[in-house]
Structures are given as C-alpha cells and as structure tokens.
C-alpha cells in the first residue's frame, strides 16, 4: 500500500456548486463522484475537471443526506425517509423502499459490499441486503427522547473493517456497537462530551455523534463531533474526537482540533498510520492524527464547511464535499 503522507496535503481543485453537498461516494478507480445535495438530488460529477457539467442521477424530492456505492449500485437516503437503489451502469432505478419513519441520516456499506446499514431519526438502524433490498434486521438501542424530553436524532453508522461489527451514534452521545451477524448489542459507549444541553441560557441542545470509525483491528472506535459549546447558537466549541476501547468501555484517548466546529467524517488508515478527521464550523478543516503516539501530524483549513469526504484507493487523493463546493486534495509528494 502506498505511503501517502499527510504532510504533503494540498488543494488541487475547487469545484463550485450551488447549495449544500451532504455526502459523497466515488466510483472505484475514477474521479467520478456521486454527491448528495440539498436540492433533493444526487449528481454525478467528474472531479477530475474543474468545469465538468454535473449529471442528475436520483431525485428524492427532499434533502438527500447520504449516498453510498456498492459496485454499480448507488444507494441514497434522505428526508423523504426512503432509500433509492440505482443502477449506475444502465442508469435506471432498481427499487425504492420506504425504509424509515423519519429522515435517513447516513448509510454505510459493509466491506464485502453485501450489506447496507441505514440510520434515521426514528432512532432505528436497519440492515439491508444490497443485492435484493430485503431487510436483514433492525437494531434498536438508541432512545427516542433526549433526557430533557425532546426528540433525539441518530446521525451516523460505520462498519468495522472485517464487516463483523457496526457502530451507530446518536445526538446525546451514545454509541452502540452491534454484532452484524446476529444483531446483538455488544457494547454501549457513552460520549457525553459531544452533546451540549444548555438548560440555563438557551434551553436547547446542539452536537451529537457525527462521525465514527473503527480502528483497523476493530477493537477501538473513534467518535467525532464537537465538544462542549458555551453558546449553542453557533458551533463555537472545539472540534473533538474520542477514541474508546468499546469492549472495555474505556476511553483510550481524546483530542481537539484547533478549529471550532464539527468533525463530520473520520477515516482510520487501514495500516493504523493515522486517523483523518474532517469537518467544519464557519469554514472547513482537516486534521491527521498519529494514532500510534497521539500527536497531530498535520492540519489545515478547507475552503468550506465539509460534510463528507472520500479517499482514492491509493490514499493519495481526497475528495471533500460541503457548503457550495467540492474540493480535491492530494497527499502525494
């Protein structure tokens, strides 16, 4: 595996887009991106060119929060509570499923490409057979109401690299670890530092678990979001990650970026060289953390609040989507 070096990180392209891009998937071995947008659609965009015309692929009729690829199959989910399967090869819809009773927040595809996990604000994680769209099982472990009796939200999910475990994270900082094979809840990790309930000044909350990544050996889970916020009107808290040994329910380490905002995406390098953390507040930021010695390797600003990112196969190119932009970065010398 090539040794992409975060210290070489640099912007190589910015592509302006109207609206907000919440999620991205990449067609293997290409710079072709599928981006989920707040104009209710999923677009195909060639990020290898600065001015390529995007092609509309899917229309949900509502904000699209999540898009993932399994082979030639595109699956997207959004505020319409539905999952849409789309065959990219012949450009046709495969199926549409009323998957949840509230908006779908995020999707994850198992490493073998056979299973899809969807999380939604009905506080249920559902596992699906990607090939036929059949439900496999429901995973219920997140409370529908917050401790102060408001509706909660289930933001994110991630498979372990071997595909045997799945993590889900909610608004109040709860992370559940599931056995994918039988649906058993293996552990519950509480990360309250990522949830701010302001019961004095503003009587509302902000934050939540916004990103998850297993360590390569699957024993640890990195949990990202924003730390405690004094003024919940904005994202004026430190971007924050906690790493937990989920089996022992122990926090192994934690760190905060020097920027205020959310870590919306975590990617743990398969050789355990670093953890890449991407997100944003008023602007965007990216941080590489050495997971061996708990030091920051490199961090830099991004030109927009970034909602999602995806690496190329050789880890040398990184694609970000967010507020009105797609940004391409490279890590090669």
């Amino acid at each position: 595996m090539p040794d992409a070096n975060p210290r070489n990180l640099r912007n190589v392209r910015e592509i302006n887009r109207p609206g907000i891009l919440f999620s991205v998937a990449r067609v293997p071995n290409t710079a072709c991106l599928l981006v989920a947008s707040n104009d209710n659609k999923v677009y195909e965009v060639d990020a290898g060119q600065a001015n390529a015309a995007p092609r509309q692929v899917v229309d949900h009729g509502r904000y699209v929060n999540a898009v993932r690829l399994a082979g030639n199959t595109l699956i997207s989910g959004g505020y319409d509570n539905r999952l849409i399967w789309w065959n990219l090869q012949d450009n046709r819809e495969i199926r549409t499923i009323d998957a949840h009773t509230r908006q779908v927040r995020q999707l994850a595809v198992s490493p073998d490409g056979t299973k899809l996990a969807s999380v939604a604000d009905d506080m249920v994680c559902r596992l699906w057979n990607i090939a036929n769209g059949e439900p496999i099982r429901e995973l219920r472990g997140h409370e529908e109401r917050t401790p102060t009796n408001f509706g909660s939200m289930l933001y994110c999910c991630a498979f372990s690299n071997d595909g045997t475990k799945l993590a889900t994270g909610d608004r109040v900082g709860r992370v559940c670890i599931w056995n994918v094979a039988n649906g058993e809840r293996l552990s519950t990790v509480e990360v309250p530092s990522l949830y701010t309930w302001d019961g004095t000044q503003r009587i509302r909350s902000i934050g939540g678990v916004r990103s998850l990544a297993f360590s390569p050996d699957g024993t640890q889970i990195a949990v990202g979001g924003v730390g405690q916020i004094g003024n919940v009107d904005g994202l004026s808290g430190p971007s924050r990650v906690e790493i937990h040994n989920w089996a022992r329910r122990e926090r192994v380490s934690d760190f905060q970026g020097n920027q205020q905002g959310l870590f919306n995406k975590l990617v743990w390098h398969p050789n355990n060289q670093w953890l890449c953390c991407v997100g944003g507040g008023n602007n965007g930021f990216i941080l590489f953390r050495n997971t061996q010695n708990n030091t920051t390797i490199h961090q830099m600003n991004l030109p927009m609040h970034t909602h999602d990112s995806v690496f190329s196969e050789n880890w040398e190119t990184l694609y970000h989507v967010g507020h009105q932009k797609i940004v391409v970065q490279e890590l090669r010398p």
């Binding site: 604000d121 408001f150 509706g151 939200m153 608004r171 000044q201 503003r202 009587i203 509302r204 909350s205 902000i206 919940v232 009107d233 904005g234 994202l235 507040g281």
Partner: peptide, 17 residues
C-alpha cells in the same frame, strides 16, 4: 420560550423545538 437564535444547525434545532 427562548432561545431560537439558530445561526448554526437551524434544522436540527427547529426539529427539536
């Protein structure tokens, strides 16, 4: 009923409130 000043995360705050 305060405080609705949702300069960030407007939709989640309104979904809550």
């Amino acid at each position: 009923r305060a405080w609705w000043d949702t300069h960030a995360q407007n939709f989640e705050s309104h979904q809550e409130m």
